[in-house]
Design a protein around this nucleic acid. Structure first.
Length: 539
RNA sequence: CGCGGGAUAGAGCAGUCUGGUAGCUCGUCGGGCUCAUAACCCGAAGGUCCAUGGUUCAAAUCCAUGUCCCGCUACCA
């Protein structure tokens, strides 16, 4: 067996200061879809997610709750893992930045950058707002040295010893990187932001803190704790270690590195598109293929989050509608990269229209026709005998290639839309052709029977193709479709997928086997209903 | 202040580069069909394409000015 090509992709490593919200679920669903898609294509995939667990905020929250930071993190990590399981997220590696092996990677990485001469000790001076926990630029302060967010509070002067990373050394290399590799930052609007940001000149940033201790010590100076980015980002490296590897950079990069794609929220774009590549250059490591900054969920134009109090709990949505529904809505209704709004009525409408009515019902009505008139077998026809201008064949023929490009571009909405187009055509086609009438006529005219059989085949095959191409997004629904079509495939079970050539075959229109025994017709997607007590009328 | 992205039917979007009957999905209304998950198919209503001015035989599309939204403008992840 030839070694399959490897593909690795990451979600952000989530800060486990609270239970996961919709904003954590979103990129994770997207990443899972890509990972599943690449597995279907036969790639050897490493899908990395995890948690960022150090820092003052976590230390404080834990203290407030009267427990150790580690115990605090353990609990929240569990809530993330539980959500991923419910959402049917099949990650390969969950990296926690508190892992022992991560300490070793951070240490070695720091050492490399240190030896390169890119780390130095200096003073972090400036006005500090205690409420924001943040240094403020003098130009942002209000009269009387008050914070522009906490307007009643006066900022304090701080003069603190910190280690700094020489980001300023990397301005030219970064600019060259963005230029030579235009796809490095996506979508384009985010790329522009970053380029402009870098153009105005880069300041070094501090990578250590002295006023708390929940983190790894600086190897050369244990009074300092390594701060955020020189810890969290390196989780992407640690995650690539095999279980029995010595925790060294060399081992981390031997198989899966560099990452093909980092999926992140636009809020942490700069750290991934500027700091991270600079850090990697300094350490002499290869750069990832691309950084994709996705958008946020808005509720009436307001960002959803715990602070705004308008967040919808992913677990509540799961209780009501299930994983496939959430996955489909997030990926189909919101262009990946743009902000999207969440509206529950729309959620229910779209899911019912697309998956229950268009896709599910098309399979259901066709399957029942086949059961009544064809002995519950895939019609026994010559696939090659279906004329090239058959509308379903015509559209289905190029769909696999088109959808592949859309997945690669992370254009999930395009995947769904183009597949749905085939499905809608299927409904139009069956109505126009009226195979139920042909079957009746077929009792005295074998030619009519043949015609009906061909029509049924073309529809079943189109539904199969749709299910296959949507499997990374709605795996459970696709599995039900495949099983009703007589396959023993479970899109959640890699062992049941023949990775050697499955994609080539199954992404093609016209591979459904004649005379394959069909399953019994049951709705593959039950209609959703809005909760009764919550008439979610839009104002 | 600087840079960037927007403003198109009740909602969400496409169309703008390469001017020429304004399109898609959801929702609403009417009809058809009966194979189907009260589903599907067909049709209709619904738009001063942000405003004003200009170029042109012709502007959602090109040009100018203005209005309103949103993002970025460095150490919270």
């Amino acid at each position: 067996m030839t070694a399959a090509k490897s593909f690795s992709i990451t979600t952000p490593l989530f800060y486990v200061n609270d239970v996961p919200h919709i904003g954590s679920a979103y990129p994770t669903i997207a990443t899972d879809a890509i990972a599943r898609f690449q597995r279907m294509r036969g790639y050897d995939v490493r899908f990395v997610t995890g948690s960022d667990e150090h820092g003052q905020k976590i230390q404080r929250t834990a203290e407030e709750k009267g427990r150790t930071p580690q115990a605090h993190c353990d609990e929240y990590v569990d809530s993330f893992k539980a959500l991923w399981q419910r959402l049917n997220i099949k990650y390969d590696r969950f990296i926690r930045t508190t892992e022992v092996r991560h300490a070793a990677i951070v240490k070695e990485f720091f050492q490399r950058v240190w030896e390169k001469g890119d780390i130095y000790l200096s003073q972090q001076k400036g006005y500090y707002c205690v409420s924001c926990e943040e240094f403020k630029d003098e130009k942002d302060l209000l009269d009387g040295k008050r914070c522009n967010i906490h307007v009643t509070k006066e900022v304090e002067w701080r003069d603190e010893e910190n280690y700094f990373f020489r980001l300023s050394n990397y301005q030219a290399p970064l600019e060259a990187l963005y230029k030579t590799n235009p796809d490095f930052i996506q979508p384009e609007t985010r790329r522009n932001e970053v380029i402009k940001f870098v153009e105005q000149g880069l300041r070094d940033f501090s990578i250590s803190r002295v006023n708390f201790d929940w983190g790894f010590p600086v190897p050369t100076d244990p009074n300092h704790v390594i701060y955020v980015w020189f810890d969290a980002l390196l989780g992407y490296l640690t995650a690539l270690l095999e279980d029995d590897d010595e925790p060294t950079l060399e081992n981390a990069i031997k198989r899966w590195y560099p990452h093909h794609t980092h999926i992140i929220g636009k809020d942490i774009l700069r750290f991934h598109a500027v700091y991270w590549p600079a850090m990697l250059m300094s350490a002499g490591l290869e750069l990832p293929g691309r950084i994709f900054g996705h958008g946020f969920f808005l509720d009436n134009g307001v960002k959803m989050g715990k602070s705004s109090g308008n967040a919808i709990s992913p677990n509540v949505l799961l209780d009501r509608y299930g994983a496939d529904a959430m996955r489909y809505y997030f990926l189909k209704e919101i262009r990946f990269g743009q902000d999207g709004s969440f509206e529950e009525t729309r959620f229910v409408n779209i899911l019912n229209a697309d998956l229950a009515n268009d896709l599910g019902n098309l399979l259901n009505r066709t399957l029942k026709l086949a059961a009544k008139n064809g002995g519950a077998l895939v019609p026994d026809i010559q696939v090659l005998g279906i004329p090239d201008n058959n509308p379903l064949k015509e559209m289905g023929r190029n769909l696999g290639d088109f959808v592949t490009k859309s997945y690669e571009a992370l254009a999930f909405h395009e995947v769904c839309e183009s597949v749905l187009e085939l499905v809608r055509l299927g409904n139009r086609y069956i109505d126009e052709q009226a195979p139920w009438t042909l079957y009746k006529l077929g009792k005295s005219d074998p030619k009519k029977h043949q015609e009906a059989e061909q029509i049924i085949y073309a529809i079943l095959e189109s539904v199969r193709l749709a299910a296959y191409l949507l499997a990374p997004i709605i795996p459970a629904t696709s599995t039900r479709i495949y099983q009703q079509l007589g396959y023993f495939i479970d899109f959640d079970d890699a062992a049941l997928i023949d990775v050697s050539n499955l994609f080539q075959t199954h992404s093609t229109w016209g591979i459904l086997e004649s005379r394959q025994a069909l399953g019994e017709a049951h709705p593959i997607f039950q209609k959703l209903e809005l909760p009764l007590d919550e008439p979610s009328a839009t104002p």
